[in-house]
Write a protein that binds this DNA or RNA. Sequence first.
DNA 1: TTACGCCTTATGTCTATATCTTTTGAAAAA
DNA 2: TTTTTCAAAAGATATAGACATAAGGCGTAA
Lengths: 229, 229
Amino acid sequence: MSITYREVKADILRQITQGTLAPGSAMPNEVDLAASYGCARATVNRAMRELADDGIIERRRKAGTRVRQNPIRQVRLNIPIVGQEIEELGATYRYALVHGQAEPAPNWLRARMALQRDDRVLHLTCMHYADGAPYQHEDRWINLSALPEAEQHDFSEVGPNEWLVSTVPFTDAQISFHAVQADATIADYLDCTEGDALFQTERTTWLEGRTITFVQLTYRRGHRVTMQY
Amino acid sequence: MSITYREVKADILRQITQGTLAPGSAMPNEVDLAASYGCARATVNRAMRELADDGIIERRRKAGTRVRQNPIRQVRLNIPIVGQEIEELGATYRYALVHGQAEPAPNWLRARMALQRDDRVLHLTCMHYADGAPYQHEDRWINLSALPEAEQHDFSEVGPNEWLVSTVPFTDAQISFHAVQADATIADYLDCTEGDALFQTERTTWLEGRTITFVQLTYRRGHRVTMQY
DNA sequence: TTACGCCTTATGTCTATATCTTTTGAAAAA
DNA sequence: TTTTTCAAAAGATATAGACATAAGGCGTAA
């Protein structure tokens, strides 16, 4: 077999990292590269397409391909559901429903979830434990107009996150990470001190333009999200 | 022209989201799909490959392709350098070097950066401002054994991050996000109250197995990292 | 029954060629 | 000079056919 697209990709990357192909410089076109590697143009194309996707090079029709001045640094971040996250740590997962009640949406939440004036929400408060110790506090609101079956569902055994991903998979979401100070309630749940700095994730989820759910996930003290690139 | 791989991808995705193809179910093989779409196998292959890459379907040689039971939720997170980040907010960026000194690596850092006993590091403390207000505090250590030219460089005008990405692009890195409480020093720099919960990023960067730099980036109060998927 | 190894099959990849689309730069028109 | 138009260039994508590779499953031998 002749040269593979992986080898072409690796060779081009090597030339870039070793400085043979300088940042900002133009690269030969696909036809010429294919000729010099002695392979088909499609093979070069795939290698170049992946490098562009990785943020290493920049491609423009007619203008050609050039090495990016500064490579785009990007990571892929998996968003696991908390049970899996805990079990991957090698710990035992336990879930508890703290509180669940259907109620009219408060104003701040109506704005946040883009709800109508009379929309009702299911407010759930849950705890997730790793090896018996508090791991994550979940404060969730589900839009009952968009997902009425949530009101009948029993969340005492299975967490709302798990139920939602199996009931409405393939949603869109916006996620945000930030830091919050533990208030007395959260400190109590997460077994930490009031005022502690905690890592919090907020997530709003849509299905076909309708807001399904908004959730605040507050992690135990010292939680980290790590990534490689 | 006949059907495109994008259309095939969109159609398969539609079937999955609409439930025609149930989660966990096996899909027809590429040859059959190509026949039913009236296109080449390569076209179907690209559509399916991208769906697999998106975490929607699962492919295994011989075993075939099936719809994932729970789609993998993943986001792509760009790691901008702080100047760009601030300018994208529409604010004016200003940089200041607070402190810079070459010194022997303290023990905790030696462990963290996997340094030898006698390795020296350049310790830099910098501030980044958006429209004149504190935005980010940078505490950085550069391994002088790996990057001796850093010692001669003047970091009073251009931040170490910018200098590093142009001097040693194409590095590997591990990033971590977490929350910290502002101590008196940080509170002073970031113009917040001691004890405030702040978002912090830590990053260790390698080049060919050697640790280049370790940095702690502490953001102003209320900083958020947001993503879509 | 169990373990090993072959056969088949589905995906993975390459080739060679062709057409489509976007974009740039130059020529032509105002 | 400025604007419009157009052709060429380069990447984007499609096709048909071929071979490569991994792995499930079955048959055979221990």
